[in-house]
């Protein structure tokens, strides 16, 4: 098991990886609550980006509607908690089949009727919009007035119910991010992962090599949707509120994919690195602006746009592949 876990990890990359993990584990003792909350948000985007990357980065299927799976995860877990007192982990267990089913329906329609490329992306947007409008008018989940997870003062952290202080949320999302990273590491080196890469590179050639492309694209959508739903569960219990206009919004979907695009689509470190670059620098920027007493609304969005432009023009493979070469670790492709 350990041998398989470290397969593809060179000695040169093992040391920085161990140092990074140690730094992340020690972070709650090193930084204040404000920075810890920043790290939580960064890891949350790193996690969601990694989940999206399974579909786009590995199998080459562009989804611009991942807010759907995020929102479903959040709504399923929050509804079960507020209505029936069922904890978020069991909620996640229910969210997995719900989000998977949504992904499977979209995937089936698209792949059976040969909707591909940009048209597939539009289909994913359409389904996220259906959900947004549907939840906005569904009284059971309090429609557009929003669903709130009750906030109480808890004497101690309760990870089972995801109630507690930022340190607890931090370790939960760090654990999830590490687990998803390890899962993706295995997936991309497995038979399924190779078949995904083949489909991403050339679907016709993949079929000629005997790959049932319909089946493997479906697996990619379902795994990606299921993993994304956890980001929604986390979102619901971290922010304690869900509004259809926010969680199912196209901006949410775009926000998820900016990290992997900037970090490097199809790489394991890209989504996490991209989230650090994007959220970290955006936050630093607004701190500096605040320090100088400048208040410009929308500056973060402009900053995202500038980051995206720089990456598209100067680093089309994202920040990670050239950085990996610079550090002399790993191969540029997984």
């Amino acid at each position: 098991m350990m041998a398989r876990l470290t397969a593809g990890v060179t000695r040169r990359s093992a040391i920085p990886l161990a140092l990074l993990l140690a730094a992340l584990l020690a972070a709650p003792w090193l930084v204040n609550d404000y920075l810890l909350t920043m790290l939580i948000i960064i890891l949350y985007f790193g996690y969601a980006g990694q989940a999206w990357n399974i579909m786009m980065g590995f199998a080459g299927q562009l989804s611009l509607g991942h807010a759907l799976y995020l929102g479903l995860g959040g709504y399923v877990a929050a509804t079960l908690f507020t209505r029936f007192g069922i904890g978020p982990w069991l909620g996640f267990a229910v969210a997995i089949p719900v989000a998977s089913a949504a992904g499977a329906i979209i995937g089936f329609l698209a792949f059976r009727f040969r909707v591909a490329g940009i048209y597939f992306a539009i289909l994913t947007i359409a389904f996220a919009e259906f959900a947004r409008i549907g939840f906005d008018n569904w009284d059971y989940v309090h429609a557009s007035s929003g669903l709130f997870v009750p906030v109480k003062q808890y004497a101690h952290n309760n990870p089972w119910l995801l109630r507690g202080d930022p340190t607890m949320f931090y370790y939960v999302i760090l654990g999830a991010t590490v687990l998803l990273f390890v899962l993706c590491h295995f997936l991309v080196r497995s038979r399924v992962g190779y078949f995904w890469l083949a489909i991403r590179e050339d679907e016709t050639a993949a079929r000629a090599a005997g790959i049932d492309t319909f089946r493997y694209k479906m697996i990619a959508v379902v795994v990606s949707a299921a993993m994304t739903s956890f980001a929604g569960v986390f979102y619901a219990f971290f922010y304690n509120n869900l509004f259809p206009e926010q969680v199912f919004s196209i901006f949410r979907s775009v926000e998820i994919i900016l990290g992997p695009i900037i970090g490097g689509i199809g790489t394991l470190f890209g989504p996490i690195l991209g989230a650090f670059v994007l959220k970290g620098l955006a936050e630093a920027l607004s701190s500096v602006m605040t320090a100088f007493g400048i208040d410009l609304p929308g500056v973060t969005q402009v900053f995202y746009g500038v980051c995206l432009l720089i990456v598209v023009v100067a680093l089309p493979d994202g920040v990670w592949p050239p950085l990996a070469r610079l550090l002399g670790i790993g191969r540029s492709k997984p």
Binding site: R191, Y194, F195, L197, A198, E201, D202, T204, A205, A206, A209, G210, I211, K333
Partner: peptide, 19 residues
């Protein structure tokens, strides 16, 4: 010809062999 362009030579053939 259409090998998988962005993959290594080895990975191209591994994909066939995995069938």
């Amino acid at each position: 010809v259409r090998p998988f362009p962005g993959l290594s030579v080895e990975d191209n053939v591994i994909i066939g062999a995995l069938l």
